[in-house]
């Protein structure tokens, strides 16, 4: 494939993701999984999880961070820029039209009903995406414990998510180190 075609492919794929993501960076996961992992093979499920975790504790918007990551890995700096441009293009077009011409878009009853339907769909799609990811990421008692702890702490404390992400990374190192240590000295 020529370079230009490759960039067009990258742009269109991320424009599709940006154009159908309702409700923030996490809602794009099902489409991202389908397009980037299953259809195009630009990343594996595990890599996607890494990008999400890193996107969460680096500044900026998670969706943009993830797009840049995948585009850059695929085609260098131009790839990162093209993927990000694709991601944001639908937003720019749609919001500009709404801001220019439609005064009470979100009060519109039809929009409200459509959104109620879409919200249910987003839950269903994200839930099944989570089930796929859990199989690869929750592999033993320790990862289940980290999952449970981060889930409860994020639900019931107001502390920013990136604190829990950092702590989970530290916990990963400590747990793995301890198991190694135990294996090395079986008499202990």
């Amino acid at each position: 494939m020529s370079k230009l075609k490759e960039f067009a492919d990258l742009f269109i794929t991320f424009a599709k993701i940006g154009g159908f993501t309702f409700g923030g960076g996490y809602a794009m996961l099902p489409i991202l999984q389908r397009e980037v992992v299953e259809n195009k093979h630009w990343a594996t499920e595990e890599e996607l999880m890494d990008y999400y975790a890193i996107g969460q504790c680096t500044p900026g918007i998670i969706a943009v961070n993830t797009a840049t990551f995948i585009g850059y890995r695929k085609d260098g700096i131009p790839g990162g820029v093209v993927a990000t441009a694709g991601m944001v293009a639908p937003s720019i077009v749609i919001i500009t039209i709404i801001a220019a011409f439609i005064n009470s878009f979100s009060d519109n009853l039809i929009v409200q009903h459509a959104l109620a339907g879409v919200r249910v769909c987003v839950c269903v799609l994200v839930l099944s995406a989570i089930m796929k990811l859990a199989k690869k990421s929750l592999i033993d008692a320790a990862t289940y414990a980290i999952f449970g702890a981060v889930l409860l702490l994020s639900l019931f404390t107001g502390v920013s998510a990136f604190v829990w992400v950092i702590l989970a990374g530290v916990a990963g190192i400590v747990i793995k180190r301890l198991t190694e240590y135990r294996k090395q000295s079986p008499q202990a």
Partner: peptide, 22 residues
């Protein structure tokens, strides 16, 4: 090792987002 912990946290955060939409 850090990634091993991060991935589990990542799944948890996505679950939280899913629960908020739910």
């Amino acid at each position: 090792y850090a990634m091993y912990g991060l991935r589990a946290a990542s799944v948890a955060l996505i679950t939280v987002a899913c629960l908020r939409v739910a």
